[in-house]
Simulated scan of single mutants.
Amino acid sequence: MDEVRSNNNVVYRCNFHVVWCPKYRRPVITGAVDVRLKEIIREVCAERDSPIEAIETMPDHVHLLVVCDPQFGIHRLVKQIKGRSSRLLRAEFPHLKSRLPTLWTNSYFVATTGGATLEIVKHYVENQRNV
């Protein structure tokens, strides 16, 4: 996870913890839906060269630890994952259509992960002139 990556313009190490839930927090991520959801997430992340460090589902939410290019943006990656998984899962599992108007809520949680605390980074930035 501490691997430094790069594209044509940016050298980065951006790891994100993302959590999102089905609409009304319904416990629908079980059995075959769970298996297929993880496949879809892996496909989208592979297409976007966003390595998955960890993925786990509960019946009513998803946890994803992923590396994402800052120029592509974590918001775009999450939008693509949620959009494709909603469309495919609702087509493949009709019971999801009858129970939910949409598969996912509009919102999600995202946090960056890193080895240094905010206090350490702040101290580093503030003391650049003294180096």
Rank of each mutant, 00 (worst) to 15 (best):
D2N: 14
V4K: 07
R5Y: 14
R5T: 03
N7E: 00
N9L: 07
N9V: 10
V10W: 03
R13T: 02
R13V: 00
R13G: 06
V18S: 01
V19D: 04
C21R: 08
C21K: 06
P22H: 07
Y24L: 03
R25I: 10
V28I: 15
I29F: 08
T30D: 00
A32V: 08
V33Q: 02
R36W: 10
K38D: 06
I41R: 11
R42I: 02
E43C: 08
C45T: 07
C45P: 02
A46G: 11
A46D: 12
D49T: 12
D49N: 15
S50K: 05
S50Y: 03
P51K: 12
I52S: 09
E53C: 08
A54G: 01
I55M: 14
I55D: 06
I55C: 14
E56M: 04
T57V: 15
M58F: 04
M58L: 12
P59H: 06
P59E: 01
D60S: 10
V62G: 05
H63M: 11
H63K: 06
L64Y: 08
L64T: 04
L65E: 05
V67G: 01
P70L: 05
Q71M: 05
Q71T: 13
Q71C: 02
I74V: 15
R76T: 10
R76L: 12
R76V: 08
L77G: 04
V78T: 05
R84S: 03
L89H: 06
R90G: 00
F93R: 04
F93Q: 11
L96A: 03
L96P: 02
K97E: 12
K97D: 13
R99V: 10
R99W: 00
P101I: 06
T102M: 02
W104K: 04
W104C: 08
T105A: 13
Y108I: 12
Y108E: 01
Y108V: 13
Y108L: 13
F109Y: 14
V110K: 01
V110H: 01
T113G: 09
T113S: 11
G114F: 11
G114E: 02
A116Q: 13
T117G: 08
T117L: 02
I120M: 09
V121P: 03
Y124V: 03
V125G: 00
R129E: 15
V131S: 06
